[in-house]
Simulated scan of single mutants.
Amino acid sequence: MLHNDPIASLTPEVIAWRHHIHCNPELGFDENETARFIAEKLRAFGFDEVHEGIGGTGVVGVLRSGTGTRAIGLRAELDALPVVERTGLPYASRNEGVMHACGHDGHTAMLLGAARLLSQSRAFDGTVYFVFQPAEENEGGSLRMIEDGLFERFPVEAIYAVHNWPGLEQGTIAARAGAQMAAVDNFELTFEGFGAHAAMPQLGDDPILAAGAFVQAVQRIVSRSIDPQTALVVSLTQIHGGNVGNIVPGRVWLQGTCRFFEPGHSDHCEKLVGEIAHGIAAAHALKATLDYHKGYPPLINTADATARAIAAAAATVGSENVTTEFSPSLGCEDFAFMIRAAGGCYAWIGVGDVGPGEGLHGDRYVFNDEIVPTVLRYYVNLVEQTLPAS
């Protein structure tokens, strides 16, 4: 462990970095200034190597100590969301319509803080790769970095990440071996026919009627096609059709998502969404066009890495404040690609309860800066316990 608690001394600076990143948010694969800020900090910390432009705007810092050949990775995300911020913070977003509404600014700043601490102490034996990835939210920046040779260039025995977690008591850390976050598939569906005057619908087709039937019928995937004790969610998130009050439109477009933990449910959902869509289209004399996209896999923490993460968490907050028995989330996380490729563990950091609109992706979401020293200490413990100095 580091002595004289430099973590407490560094915390205000880490929070200042977080506020800087927060007021200058950038969307996925456009995080150019954020990546530049990170690379400059890592170089100023005296890192052995700093690599930029990996998978687009990704940054990897390399920190070595001792003679050990073992290596682990620590990862944070760079991107913000297309959300109009309504927090009223003095450091609120300066980029209209873009907001750090999920805490990636905090995750990045805390990983930079850990980089600073470990570069000063070097109280470990081996190599730590600090991975700052672009485009977590929707574009799969994690996979892009892997395809760009991340783990061939920076091989690790496991990679670790954290996420602030509203609803989990502050002062607690949660991690479990096995599935912790769900897989996600997305689909777009169009019903097309002929429009007609609203007073004479018999002269055209009615894709709105078909869309309504689909919204109801697609839920049979959850209620009637799988074991009811198995987690699966099918949600319709957008419906667009028509632009005037007295015309039945000729086209309606829908968007939806499927969330699950069993990888086999991806093919199952794709098959049934298609069968239901085309069946309803045929019943309404319409054409259906389906674009089904297989997205992030389930995030499945590996056993050895999770045991190390739990040990580091216990050293950080006490074993009584480490949660390992909990229900996984049907939210998704593209860190799943990195764990699938290299093994690892994703931990939730409790931030307490929040109000409406103040949770993840809400326009009044505010990152809880009080967790900063906890995460700094967790990362230091994780590195020093996993790669102990001789």
Rank of each mutant, 00 (worst) to 15 (best):
D5N: 15
I7H: 10
I7E: 10
A8M: 10
S9C: 07
E13G: 04
W17F: 09
R18E: 02
H22Q: 10
L27P: 07
E33A: 15
T34W: 13
T34Q: 09
A35G: 03
E49A: 13
E49F: 04
V59D: 01
G61L: 02
V62D: 05
S65I: 11
G68K: 13
E77A: 02
A80G: 08
R86D: 08
Y91L: 05
A92D: 10
G97E: 11
V98D: 05
A101L: 07
H104M: 08
H107S: 06
T108M: 14
L117A: 14
S121W: 03
G126L: 12
T127R: 05
V131T: 08
P134N: 06
A135Y: 05
A135P: 00
E139R: 15
R144V: 11
D148C: 00
P155C: 05
A161V: 10
A161H: 11
W165T: 12
W165K: 14
G167N: 01
Q170R: 15
A182H: 03
E188I: 04
G193V: 06
G193M: 09
A210F: 01
A210E: 01
G212N: 01
A217K: 09
V218F: 13
S223C: 03
S223E: 04
I226V: 15
P228V: 02
P228G: 02
Q229M: 14
I239E: 02
H240D: 13
N246D: 10
C258Y: 06
R259G: 07
F261A: 08
F261N: 03
H265K: 10
D267V: 08
E275Q: 14
H278L: 10
G279I: 11
I280A: 00
A283C: 07
A285M: 08
A288G: 08
I300Y: 00
D304C: 05
R308I: 04
I310Y: 09
A314K: 07
A314W: 07
A315L: 14
V317Q: 06
S319E: 15
C332S: 15
M338D: 09
M338W: 06
R340I: 00
A342R: 12
A342K: 08
G344A: 12
C345I: 13
G355T: 01
G359I: 06
P373T: 09
V375I: 15
V383Y: 04
Q385T: 15
P388R: 11
P388Y: 13
